[in-house]
């Protein structure tokens, strides 16, 4: 039991936040969980959250790994997603008619570009020992312009049946395709972490790179690998985002998503200073952020004030989760326990 508690203790924060948000939503209106069928697909508050958070979930998985291994954050994820999806759109539009083959080839091509961008950041961080945030600042500065040049014009439109289906629903399947893709991605990742030594290596490097090196793990390789994974994640996120939108808007696609992704990692109970990590926490954190955004909309708060409420919410959350407050609560609980025993 205690072991189970230990395994779950880092998830207490995100899950309790989620429960709190659900309670707020239920107070606002009891129809929060209602799900309706429209054109053979499920719609409602919960499916919308799953649908809306799909890119954020994928990106926060990659961000968790990068944070754990390199003790820093990649702030260029939105930009690398934009560039890789620009390549995807370029390929699909260039090849004329969109068939499943062109879509898949385009997706693979965008993955290659994503890996390349990840490698760019990874080389800077691992070999040249630049801090991750500084290294990704380069791509952050120039990324959207590169995407614009690949596009050649402002927001080319991706109007074909297949990408429409990828972005919304495939007829006959009641769940939106992005949700399915996210689930598949999470499953793939779970298998990767369970079957390989990736988790052990990343955590070792994150806790102490020198100790890892002395134990025969090459920190450079591990950090580089996490950045490659981050590049792949951003390519997938870009693919989903561009299919959702139906057009490639190089200026606004996934803008400022790195803030939300880092926030998701932090809400998930992970330290932004590297070390042990929990992908589950980050995933729940990402869904929590989407839920928070939608809750604020549902409460009909003035659009101008939404950011204020979000900020206050985050601050309260982080204060509750902060080590000082946690220690204080533990101390109070201990005192009560000893008093009872007396």
């Amino acid at each position: 039991m205690r072991k189970l508690m230990k395994n779950v203790s880092h998830l207490v924060l995100p899950i309790s936040v989620m429960v709190l948000l659900i309670i707020i939503n239920l107070v606002k209106g009891a129809d929060y969980f209602t799900i309706t069928m429209i054109n053979g697909a499920l719609y409602g508050n919960i499916p919308n959250i799953l649908f809306g958070a799909s890119e954020l979930v994928i990106l926060s998985i990659g961000m968790t790994l990068v944070t754990a291994a390199s003790r820093g954050q990649d702030i260029s994820i939105g930009e690398s997603a934009t560039i890789s999806s620009a390549v995807f759109v370029w390929f699909v539009l260039r090849s004329g008619e969109a068939t499943p083959v062109t879509i898949i080839v385009g997706f693979l091509l965008s993955c290659v570009v994503g890996l390349g961008l990840g490698a760019f950041n990874g080389i800077l961080v691992s070999i040249f020992k630049v801090q991750p945030m500084v290294a990704s600042l380069i791509l952050f500065t120039g990324g959207r312009s590169i995407a614009f040049m690949i596009d050649g014009k402002l927001s080319p439109i991706l109007a074909n049946d297949i990408s429409n289906r990828i972005g919304t629903v495939i007829p006959g399947i009641p769940i939106q395709t992005p949700v399915i893709l996210t689930v598949v991605f999470i499953a793939l990742f779970a298998v990767l972490l369970k079957t390989t030594t990736l988790r052990l290596y990343v955590e070792t490097v994150g806790i102490n790179p020198n100790a890892a090196r002395l134990n025969g793990i090459n920190p450079k390789k591990v950090i580089f690998l996490t950045f490659l994974i981050m590049g792949f994640c951003s390519a997938v996120a870009g693919f989903i985002a561009v299919n959702k939108a139906g057009r490639h808007d190089s200026v606004n696609l996934l803008k400022n998503i790195m803030m939300d992704a880092i926030l998701a990692v932090a809400i998930g109970g992970n330290s932004l200073g590297g070390g042990t990590f929990s992908i589950t926490g980050s995933i729940i954190g990402a869904y929590t952020i989407e839920m928070l955004n939608r809750t604020l909309l549902r409460l009909e708060i003035e659009p101008a004030m939404i950011k204020v409420f979000k900020a206050i919410f985050i601050v309260i959350l982080m204060v509750v989760a902060s080590p000082v407050v946690r220690d204080f609560i533990k101390k109070v609980l201990d005192r009560n326990r000893t008093r009872k025993e007396e």
Partner: peptide, 11 residues
């Protein structure tokens, strides 16, 4: 309160 600076200044 020893909270991570990135998150606090982001909020």
């Amino acid at each position: 309160l020893e909270i991570q600076p990135f998150i606090i200044t982001l909020s």
